[in-house]
Design a binder for these strands. Structure first.
Ligand SMILES: [Mn+2]
Ligand SMILES: [Mn+2]
Ligand SMILES: [Zn+2]
Ligand SMILES: [Zn+2]
Lengths: 127, 127
DNA sequence: GAGTATTTTTAGATTCAATCTAATATTAAA
DNA sequence: TTTAATATTAGATTGAATCTAAAAATACTC
C-alpha cells in the first residue's frame, strides 16, 4: 500500500494509508461523507478537509475516479479505475459497474468532432 | 403560448408566459441563474424561488428537460425535449445536442436488467 | 541531536446551487 | 363583494464542496 502511494508521488502518511486500505482493496463506490463518517478504528475522526484533499489527490494520480450522480445528488468516488459505465439500480438504490464490453457505443456518426470521453449513466432494475 | 401551458394544466400566468416565451421558442440550454439574471423587459426581477418553481413545473409537465452537467457544476435546463444526447465542446465551453441517430448504443449485453433510461455525456471538440 | 523548511492535517468559515418557509399578492369561484 | 385557491416573493436554510489560516507532523540540513 505504501509503495502504491509512493509510486504515484504521494507520501504514505497514516491518513492516506488508512483511506487507501479502506478504499482501494476492492472495487467500491462511496461518497466523501462515507469516509468522514467512517471512524476507521481511529481515536480521532478525520477532518472533512483532509478527506476531500486525500480523495481528490487519489483521483488526480489515478488511484480513484469520480463522477457526479444526479440520482444521489453528490460526487461518487470509484475505486474501479478501468473504463466502465454505470447503472443505477432504482430498486436497490445502488450504483453498479457495467463492463464496457456489454454496451457498445458507436459515435462514428458524429462527423467533425473528436470525442475524448464518453460517460454513460443508465437507470434500470433487475427484470 | 397560453394554450401550450394550459394544455399541460398550468395556468398561463404572466411569469410563466414570459419564461415560456424566452425559453420554449427555440431549442436552448440554460441555467436557472440565466433566467434570474435575465430581466426580460420587466420592471421587477423574478424571485429566485419563482424561477425554480416555474422551470421545475415545466420539467414536470414535459415542456423542458433537465440534467446535471458535471462540467459546469449545475443543473442545465433543456428546451429540446426530444430524446437526444449531449456533447460538451471543451473548446467552446458549450453543451451541444447530439441526435441519437448519430450515436448507436447497444445494451443487449446487459442481461438480467431492464434499462429504463440512458444518459450519454460526451466531451470533445471540433477536429 | 537541534534547528529549519516543507508538507500534511485541522476546525471552522465560506461558497454556491438549490430548496424551503411563511407571508403577501394575484387570480378564480361562489 | 366575500372567500377560497393558486402564484409569487424575500429571505432563511440546506448540504456538498472548497477555502483559510493556523497547528501538527514529517523531512532535510548541519
Ligand atoms: Mn454512499
Ligand atoms: Mn448558462
Ligand atoms: Zn464504477
Ligand atoms: Zn439538449
Amino acid at each position: 500500500m505504501n509503495q502504491l502511494l509512493e509510486k504515484r508521488g504521494l507520501r504514505a502518511t497514516p491518513h492516506r494509508v488508512r483511506i487507501a486500505q479502506k478504499v482501494l482493496q476492492e472495487h467500491c463506490h462511496f461518497t466523501a461523507e462515507d469516509i468522514c463518517g467512517w471512524a476507521g478504528g481511529l481515536k480521532k475522526r478525520l477532518s472533512r478537509a483532509t478527506v476531500y484533499n486525500i480523495l481528490n489527490e487519489f483521483v488526480a494520480v489515478g488511484l480513484l475516479k469520480s463522477f457526479y450522480s444526479s440520482a444521489l445528488g453528490k460526487t461518487i468516488y470509484d475505486s474501479n479505475t478501468e473504463n466502465h459505465f454505470h447503472l443505477y439500480d432504482t430498486d436497490k438504490d445502488q450504483i453498479l459497474d457495467v463492463d464496457p464490453s456489454l454496451v457498445t457505443v458507436n459515435t462514428s456518426g458524429l462527423k467533425g468532432y473528436r470525442i475524448d470521453q464518453i460517460e454513460i449513466l443508465m437507470k434500470g432494475r433487475r427484470r
